[in-house]
Design a binder for these strands. Structure first.
Length: 269
DNA sequence: CCATGAACCTGGTCGC
DNA sequence: TGCGACCAGGTTCATG
């Protein structure tokens, strides 16, 4: 489901309910969801502890309890939302936590999502790359780091140890805006296009956040709102539609094992 | 170092 | 209507 804009939207939507509150119980319906801790750990380290902050890092939602953090990764179909009452008709609720008189629900059709418990954010930071919406992502950084390796650009942009937050949709979108073919080798992209790529990444992600993300099928936030950035997509999902720049038809390919949408006229290799 | 394929899961869609 | 094949906003691990 979610890339950076969707995770950011979900994070903000649950944050206002939960900051300064504490969880009183947890119920597990799909045990694998808790990857590195148990309900026993919940009892001793999380239960009754104040949630000091909730924030996003990469595609993780972080619950900060000061003495430890709980991370949630939604993977493909995870949904995290607050409701006053549990909906018994929901078939795929993997976990739910009670706080005050409400519930934080974790629903996940494909069951790929995971909760983890850590002492601090250090473990995550070690394996994660830079945040694209900060000044860490600059033209100079990008040029330097595209040139010191030779990777297919799409595969590199999807790599969370390089830049975090981009997934299949926003990678295709950013490459379309920058007129870069997804199979281009990272060390053969001209400066002008690198410059455009950096701007496009920031632009696409921030515009999408403003629209509440992109809903293709599963993604919703706050129980049922959909993301409207789907209306702004230029490449992703637009097979056989006209490119909005040149009237050539968008075609679908496979790059880095992912469905990939390209305007072969604009995005020459 | 880099690319590829499989695994983890369920459900929707498409062609016959 | 039914059934199989293929596809899906992600990540990780094993293999050349």
């Amino acid at each position: 489901m979610p890339e950076l804009p969707e995770v950011e939207t979900v994070t903000q939507s649950i944050k206002r309910h939960l900051v300064n509150k504490s969880f009183s119980s947890i119920k597990i319906r799909w045990p694998k969801t808790l990857e590195n801790f148990s309900t026993y750990d919940f009892e001793s380290k999380i239960k009754g502890r104040e949630i000091v902050d909730i924030y996003r890092r990469a595609k993780y939602i972080i619950f900060d309890f000061k003495s430890c953090i709980m991370t949630v990764h939604l993977r493909m179909t995870g949904k995290l939302y607050v409701v006053p009452k549990i909906d018994k008709n929901k078939k795929h609720i993997s976990v739910y936590l009670q706080f005050s008189d409400k519930y934080l629900i974790y629903e996940d059709t494909r069951k790929f999502g995971r909760f983890n418990l850590y002492d601090n954010i250090g473990v995550l930071n070690e394996k994660l790359g830079i945040e694209p919406l900060t000044e860490d992502l600059s033209f100079n950084w990008m040029r330097q780091n595209l040139r010191n390796r030779s990777r297919q650009i799409k595969s590199l942009l999807l790599d969370q140890s390089f830049i975090v937050g981009l997934g299949n949709i926003y990678t295709d979108e950013a490459l379309w805006y920058a007129k870069i073919h997804p199979l281009s080798k990272s060390d053969s992209i001209p400066d002008e296009k690198i410059k455009k790529l950096v701007i496009s990444i920031k632009d696409v992600l921030s515009k999408s956040i403003e629209s509440g993300g992109t809903t293709i099928r599963d993604y919703t936030y706050d129980y049922s709102y959909v993301g409207n950035y789907v209306l702004s997509l230029q490449a992703y999902g637009r097979k056989d539609n006209k490119c909005n720049r040149c009237d050539n038809l968008i075609t679908k390919h496979v790059v880095a094992q992912r469905g990939t949408y390209i305007c072969l006229e604009c995005q020459k290799q």
